[in-house]
Every structure is written in C-alpha cells, then in structure tokens.
Amino acid sequence: MKKYLTATALAVCFASAAQAEGQLNLYAWSESISPTLIEKFSKANDVKVNVDGYTSNEDLLTKLQAGSSGYDIAIPSQHFLRVMIDEGLLENYGANKLKAYENIDARWRNQWWDESQEYSIPIAYGTAGFVVNTERYKGPTDSFKHFFEPGSELSGKIAMLSYPDEVIGAAQLYLGVPFCSEDQAEMKKVLDLLMAQKPAVAAYSSDNIASRLASGEVSAHFWWDGEELKARTGGSPFALAMTKEGLVGWLDSMVIPKGAPNSDNAIKFIEFMSEPENATEQMNFYAHSSPMKLVAEKVVYTKEKAPELYPEVPVAFSRTCSPAAQDLVNRVWTQLLQ
C-alpha cells in the first residue's frame, strides 16, 4: 500500500526552484500574454515572472476588493477599470509620464475610463458578438435576431457566456435599450427576450468555447473576436457575425493594484510591453487589436487576413453601470437561470 502511495506522490509532485533577482506577479486574462515576451522580459531584467489567469472581469474585481492579492499587474476592461479607480483599488503610477503613454495610439488616450491616463496603459481591444460554425450553420448572420430569436436551424445549438456582462449588452443592442438602463420596463424586455431564447440554448458557459463550437456541440456561441480569429487561422470553420445592431466593445488596460509588492518591475513590464516591437509581437500572439503604435510591416492580422478585427458595423463599448442598473442586470440574470 505504502509503495503505491509513495510512487503516486512522487509521480504527481515536481519541484521548481529557479531563483531570480526580482519578482513580478501578473494577473491577466488566461493565455493572453505572449510567453515569448514574458521570457524575453524575464531574461533581460533578471525577474521571475509568475502568471495567474482569470476568465472574467468580475473575478478580477472581487479578488482586488478582497484585498492583498499580491499581484503587481492586472488587466481589467474599461468599465471595470473605472470602478477600480473610483473604489481606490489601483495605484496611481503616473502612466501619462511614461514612455508607454507616447506609444498609445492617439484615439485611445485619455478616454472616460481614465481621463487623465494616470492609472492605466491599454494593451488590447476588441469586440464580443456571436460566432458561428460555418460548416454547421449556413443561415444569415447579419443581425442579432438570428441569435436571440433563432429559427429551427439554431434551436438547441446556441451557447451563451456564463455571466451577464457582455451578453446583456448584446441583447440591449438588439432591443435598442441603452447600456446600463435603470428603467425596469426596458430591462424586463431584455429578460423576456432571453427567456424566450432559453429553450434554444444548450449551455451558459464561458469555458472550453473553441472545442464546443468546433465539435458541433453547438453551432453558435457568444464569443470574442480575437479568440474566433485565432481558432479560424488554426483551421476551424468559424465566422464572427457582423451584426447590423453593432458589436459590444471592450478595451483592456494594464494597471497596478494598490499595495503591489513589486511596482518597480510592474512599470518596467508596462514600458516593455508598450514598445512598438513588443506590442506588435503581443498582438500577433493574442490576435486582438492593439491600441499601441505598431511596427506595421510585422503585423500578422491585417485587414485582409483578419476582417473580424476591423468591423464595419458600429462598436458600442460597455459602460460602467450605476449600482441600480447593475442590480437590474443581476436580477435579469438570476431570473433567467433561477
């Protein structure tokens, strides 16, 4: 008995003990940062980089609110960035005085989520909408109607995300309800739409999206542009629906949580990621658009190769909701899944 236990224990254990001069604890969207860049940064600065991943802004916000996360960098989307600044969860690291600030594409500087651009340097932006498996679904994709009020072809073949954030936003775009509405009647319409769609939905899940869509488990999935692009260039028959009502926009920025133990290294890393050469490498890895100045000839995902990154339909960026509006979103979601 003991023999087996010891053997198994040895088999599942492994040791890692590389000692470096400094540390940097990254908390980023899962698999979002180019490993090549992390290695390059780590070697150049003799810093050991630890990366933890999250899959929703909500997870990140909760972790920072719980306090002493020990992370040096986090990468929230714009509507959560605003909350984090207002709640005093972030370090003011004078981002607008860094070289990185100069490298931000002018149209993404000093936006409503960080007007003075003291707290954040953007790293990626993109859209969310529904992606179809073109081998399984041949119907029209020009409107959210086909997703929220599906015909028989998509019935039972639809998957949504497991949290309300962008999904409700898309439903609001379709119904013409403003983001963060505090009007009960308007939000009731959103609930009614989602309730009517529910019988056609196979799953509400944010995990494992690529394989669920590729295997044909579902034919349409709420998703992000870059993830779809990465899977498509990898050979999957996917397409992001260019819905005439618009797409839900997001922009992720690098921030330093309050009390970060290695904020010097964090600033070094933010500068490093923002150099045009590295920003280009990061975009080529992540497959989402970059809000930074790039080395144009090295960009892999050009307009010809990646039309999904250059939508011609309107893009509406998620807003920071008031607590009252957030409660309505929450109520819609709880009643939908009660």
Binding site: S56, E58, D59, L61, T62, A159, S162, Y163, P164, D165, K198, V201, A202, A203, Y204, S205, P323, Q326, V329, N330, W333, T334, L337, Q338
Partner: peptide
C-alpha cells in the same frame, strides 16, 4: 450547461457579477 442555478453558483454570482 449552467442553465439552472445551484446554491454554489448563486453564491458565486453574488460575489462576482451580482456585487452583493
């Protein structure tokens, strides 16, 4: 498929998206 909430996911929602 997360189509119906359980107590675990309900609690999770309150600490996450529900912000309550």
């Amino acid at each position: 498929g997360g189509k119906q909430m359980m107590m675990g996911s309900l609690i999770q929602l309150q600490f996450g998206g529900g912000r309550n």
